[in-house]
Amino acid sequence: MSPSSNFFRAARPAFRAREFFFRPKQGSSARFQSTAAGAGSSESWAKRMWNSPVGLKTVHFWAPVMKWALVLAGVSDFARPAEKLSLTQNAALTTTGLIWTRWCLIIKPKNYLLAAVNFFLGIVGIVQCTRIGLYHQSQKGKSLADKAEEVKEAVVKS
């Protein structure tokens, strides 16, 4: 028996304990409430959001905000011709978007901001993969001479 298997066997109960993954701070019963006891409604929304365990100074807020750049890049690619798009890249974005959307709704606490951005990333990827597939389908019936003529016309235009 290797020493590493002994380590994992000893650590298994700690990983199975719920508190290992999520320990709410003392005094926080809701997502955007202040952690100070008795603060109540006297604090502004901005102050509560700043002091929240999933607020403005945490990765739970900024990761989804930054990931919107991927969605916007995918939307801007709608203007590009389908032959210039990468099927593998768009398939990867679609897959990760859909998998992470599901994961964001399973974890505790649920991260709806991250779920939303991943959902839209998956949708943009599906649209792009569909465009690429339709382009490749349209190219199947063309002969080599037709394709050479298209390349010749493109070179003349540029």
Rank of each mutant, 00 (worst) to 15 (best):
S5K: 10
F7R: 10
F7S: 04
F8K: 02
A10Q: 02
A11T: 08
P13D: 04
F15I: 13
A17K: 09
R18P: 09
R18T: 14
E19C: 07
F21W: 11
K25G: 05
G27Y: 04
G27F: 09
G27S: 02
S28F: 05
Q33D: 12
T35D: 10
G38P: 00
A39I: 07
G40V: 15
S42F: 13
E43L: 15
S44M: 06
A46S: 11
A46M: 12
A46C: 08
W50Q: 04
P53V: 12
G55V: 12
K57W: 14
K57T: 13
T58M: 05
T58C: 02
V59F: 07
V59M: 13
H60K: 14
F61L: 08
A63D: 14
V65T: 13
K67D: 09
K67G: 02
W68E: 02
L72A: 14
A73N: 06
A73R: 02
A73D: 03
V75Q: 01
A79Q: 08
R80C: 09
K84D: 09
L85I: 10
N90L: 03
N90T: 08
T94E: 02
T95I: 13
T95P: 04
T95S: 10
G97V: 15
L98S: 02
R102H: 14
L105I: 07
L105Y: 06
I106P: 00
I106E: 03
I107P: 03
I107C: 09
P109N: 04
P109M: 14
P109T: 08
N111Q: 13
N111F: 01
N111M: 10
Y112R: 10
L113E: 03
L113C: 04
V117S: 01
L121N: 03
L121R: 03
G122Q: 06
I123G: 00
V124H: 00
V124T: 12
V124A: 08
G125T: 04
I126Y: 06
V127R: 05
T130V: 11
Y135G: 03
H136T: 07
H136L: 12
H136K: 11
Q137M: 14
Q139T: 09
K142S: 11
L144Y: 00
D146T: 07
D146A: 11
K147F: 13
A148K: 12
E153A: 12
A154N: 13
A154T: 08
A154K: 12
V156C: 03
K157G: 06
K157W: 00
K157T: 09
S158T: 06
